[in-house]
């Protein structure tokens, strides 16, 4: 299963390295969102800095929708989906591989976006360990739900509109917990971060498990 996951992840990342769609389109999109938030809230750093964590994660959420759509657009071209089914790879492995690829892409995006937020909103980057840990846990959860719902809506004519409707409300707890945890570290506070890391961790485990189990039925007979 993990060997299959590594194969699928490698394939997706190789496509990304060669096509650079995430790097050239999704990352700039996230930057646009961050700039638009700045315009909407005004230039006052007293307003922007406290809101930085929430705005950052909303931008990540919106970009995640695009990253997931890209991940399944790759499969729908040239009937690659049939090829994947006929390859005999374990469905759970395919799921984990695609999650890992989206996870890697989103983490790169978040790294870029973190500096954008620090620069534009004047957020103080402190407690890098907490920032990193919550970002990784949150992104695992986001990637897992994203791939699960990407599979649910893939192949449908209405997938572009359906995926955000299904994905974003489910991701609400991730937004909440990740924002809180980032708030704590950006403001230099200390207490309470453990709760949010637990929420993010439970969420990540739950959705990786559900996706691993449900991906098989979703992939078969289409």
């Amino acid at each position: 299963m993990f060997r299959d996951a590594a194969l699928v992840c490698g394939k997706d990342l190789r496509i990304e390295v060669r096509s650079r769609v995430t790097l050239n389109q999704v990352v700039p999109f996230a930057a646009v969102v961050v700039i638009l938030f700045g315009l909407a809230l005004g230039p006052d750093r007293k307003v922007l800095a406290p809101a930085a964590a929430g705005l950052f994660w909303v931008a990540v959420l919106l970009s995640a929708v695009l990253a997931v759509q890209r991940s399944f657009a790759v499969e729908s071209a040239d009937d690659a989906r049939e090829g994947l089914r006929l390859s005999g790879l374990d469905p759970a492995g395919i799921f984990l591989g695609k999650v890992a690829a989206v996870l890697a892409e989103l983490l790169v995006l978040e790294a870029v976006l973190t500096f954008a937020v620090a620069l534009l909103y004047g957020a103080h980057l402190q407690q890098a360990g907490l920032l990193g840990a919550s970002a990784i846990l949150a992104t695992i959860g986001l990637a897992a739900i994203g791939i699960l719902y990407g599979a649910v809506s893939s192949g449908l004519r209405v997938r572009e509109t359906l995926l955000p409707l299904l994905f974003l409300p489910i991701a609400a707890p991730v937004l909440l917990a990740a924002t809180k945890s980032w708030d704590i570290s950006l403001s230099g506070g200390d207490g309470g971060a453990g709760t949010w890391l637990t929420v993010l961790g439970v969420f990540a485990i739950l959705y990786v498990a559900i996706g691993t189990l449900a991906f098989g039925p979703l992939l078969e007979d289409r």
């Binding site: 809506s153 489910i170 739950l206 039925p217």
Partner: peptide, 22 residues
């Protein structure tokens, strides 16, 4: 099948409740 898979994921409703509480 699609519908069932998407509905099972709504297990997150309790998580929403607790995280909003905190």
């Amino acid at each position: 099948k699609r519908a069932a898979a998407s509905l099972v994921a709504f297990l997150d409703v309790p998580i929403v409740y607790f995280s909003v509480t905190w």
